[in-house]
Nucleic acid binder design. Structure first.
Length: 555
RNA sequence: GCGCCUGUAGCUCAGUGGAUAGAGCAACUGCCUUCUAAGCAGUGGGCCGUAAGUUCGAUUCUUACCAGGCGCGCCA
């Protein structure tokens, strides 16, 4: 409906343009909003306010002209158009539109909200990509929730989006992990074997050492350390990856692709990427190192690609990795990163440009920090002392649905306060329950109606124009903008918008539920309200899975 | 010092170049013989960090400053 209204106003503006009232080059987009106060109409547009200057008219006068044009050739669903305030165009819709809107939602069913807006563009969303050296942490968990929701939302709106996890299995961090496991292994045999200075202290390293003992037997101790570590390295890596996969699965996050840095290196992808930069004259040698002239593409300083000792810096394989993704046919790359990586953005954008891809190919979404609270008190975490809450720990305290909602409920560039006690509760302060409860209530109405012998097929012939109660029209309005809200969330890469929309929709439903009895003696009204409730059920059932949250039928 | 993010109600956060700046929590007051009260309605609470600029109009855009967070390696 929002679209139809925007089109009607666009047409009106088009006619005014051809009459020369508005200059033809004036911007074309027509914003439509739901007014805060229903007395300002079902929908409103401030378009005249922004166009007034170019037209050389007072906003109000222009609004009157546009309104006049809209009425001239008006959509039968539009009842009247008014101009109010400084120049808002307020549209009031005929009751018939309620019927249209509800029927459209029910007809679309599980496809309500789905669109082809993404036009099949192939998008790669990379997220989490934690080093395979320890358990997943809370920022990883936020990245998992945000990244996975983005992929789901994008696929629902016509993109071909895939999720990807980049495994840093070639760097020296895995070496440190291997050394740590090896040391714990020797210690477990009663030896006084030194633990590496930068080694990983966590208990899981000891567990892995025990597993290694089972796997390889005590003869591992008799091998030269280098040989033992050659066995331990892939073994440790595999354990870590399995652990991380398991943690993610518990959050309903599964990746389409896991790409290994090592495999990229092995097939010469790094050299290939560097050659490409060299061909562009973007590499140079200085002080015994090879540098990428990233300042040429807007980075604040040039970056070393090959160190003095002949090793790559971590960025070189990262460039190769991005080039690899692009080589697989993705035209848009999204990297979801933690707050400590924002400095990474400039060099990576520079690399993409050096490879010849257009501006806007890569989008880096930076997530801000998460502060964990328990009952309003900050949870003390000390990495050094090995005291920190992992993603797994969190799930033991907070149900998956609540965790996922909490992780996406804030804008990505806002710090997130996550109170585990609130998230774990089933009380009104917990927004997840509020939304799920709305869905359960819808289902419960049908269950009750059926049990009491109400003929549910009555819905099919329902006349939803009867839904005149303010809470009913508000509910229909809110539902009708779901596709627009979803698309806005996708364009802004902000799943938080979906979380908020879900909350608002649930609120409209709870108000309706309190004010209006669905099943009553009035057969026609009951039929209309059942259809309305069905539409709500459909909308919520479609949007919760986009956030990886279930829509329970009973609570 | 430089860069990125943030500064809106007691707390956590929405929001927008324009109509009286919103929600949840916390406080207080009402509403269950009726489809789940895990709900609803209401009251109180705001120099939208400070100052200047652009504008008919700024909480929104620009700049400076103040405050908080995070980064700034031939570490990953």
């Amino acid at each position: 409906m929002k679209d139809d209204i925007a089109k009607a106003i666009e047409k009106a503006i088009g006619r005014l343009k051809s009459e020369g009232v508005i200059p033809s080059q004036a911007a074309a987009s027509v914003p439509i909003e739901i007014p805060k106060d229903p007395k300002f109409g079902d929908f409103a547009s401030p378009v005249a306010l922004s166009l007034a200057k170019e037209a050389g008219l007072k906003p109000r006068d222009l609004a009157l002209k546009i309104a006049g044009e809209v009425m001239e050739e008006k959509d039968p669903l539009i009842l009247k158009v008014e101009v109010a305030g400084p120049g808002f165009i307020n549209l009031y819709l005929a009751d018939k539109w309620l019927d249209h809107a509800v029927k459209a939602i029910r007809k679309a069913g599980s496809d309500y909200g789905r669109s082809g807006n993404g036009a099949g563009e192939r998008v790669n969303v990379e997220f989490v990509s934690a080093n395979p050296v320890g358990p997943l942490n809370i920022v990883n968990a936020r990245a998992a929730a945000v990244g996975d929701s983005l992929v789901r939302m994008m696929n629902f709106t016509g993109y071909k989006a895939e999720s990807e996890f980049y495994v840093n299995d070639a760097g020296n961090q895995v070496g440190v992990l291997t050394d740590s496991v090896y040391a714990r292994f020797r210690q477990s045999l009663g030896e006084d074997y030194p633990f590496p200075e930068e080694g990983y202290q966590g208990l899981y390293v000891k567990d892995m050492a025990e597993k290694a003992k089972e796997e390889f037997g005590p003869e591992l101790a008799n091998m030269p350390p280098e040989e033992a570590k050659r066995l331990l390295r892939p073994f440790s890596l595999k354990q870590m990856l399995e652990w991380q996969k398991k943690s993610l699965k518990a959050y309903d996050v599964e990746f389409d692709t896991w790409t290994s840095e090592k495999s990229l290196r092995d097939k010469g992808a790094v050299e290939e990427a560097l050659d490409r930069m060299r061909d562009n004259d973007d590499l140079y040698e200085e002080e015994g190192a090879v540098w990428f002239k990233s300042t040429k593409y807007g980075d604040d300083k040039d970056r070393v690609m090959i160190k003095g000792d002949g090793e790559y810096t971590y960025v070189a394989p990262d460039f190769a990795y991005h080039l690899d993704k692009l080589g697989r046919g993705f035209t848009k790359l999204i990297d979801v990163l933690g707050p400590d990586h924002h400095g990474y953005q400039g060099r990576m954008q520079a690399g993409i440009k050096s490879f010849g891809y257009p501006e806007g190919t890569l989008y880096v979404l930076i997530l801000q920090l998460v502060t964990l609270l328990r009952g309003g008190e900050a949870v003390k975490m000390s990495k050094r002392a090995g005291e920190f809450i992992t993603m797994d720990d969190l799930l033991e305290e907070v149900p998956k649905d609540a965790a996922r909602y909490f992780f996406i409920m804030r804008n990505t560039n806002s710090h997130l306060e996550f109170d585990m006690e609130v998230a774990a509760k089933s009380t009104p302060d917990n927004p997840v329950w509020y939304v799920q409860y709305a869905h359960a209530r819808c289902c419960s109405i049908f269950e009750k109606a059926q049990r009491e012998g109400t003929d549910l097929t009555l819905m099919e012939g329902a006349d939803c124009s009867l839904l005149n109660h303010p809470t009913e029209t508000a509910l229909v309005r809110r539902m009708s903008v779901f596709p627009d809200e979803l698309w806005a969330a996708v364009e802004e890469l902000q799943p938080s918008r979906m979380a908020r929309y879900a909350y608002e929709l649930a609120g409209e439903f709870h108000r309706f539920y309190t004010e209006c009895r669905v099943v009553s003696e009035d057969v026609a009204l009951s039929a209309a309200r059942l259809a309305l409730v069905d539409a709500v059920r459909i909308t919520i059932a479609n949007l919760l899975p986009l956030m990886g949250i279930s829509a329970p039928e009973r609570m």
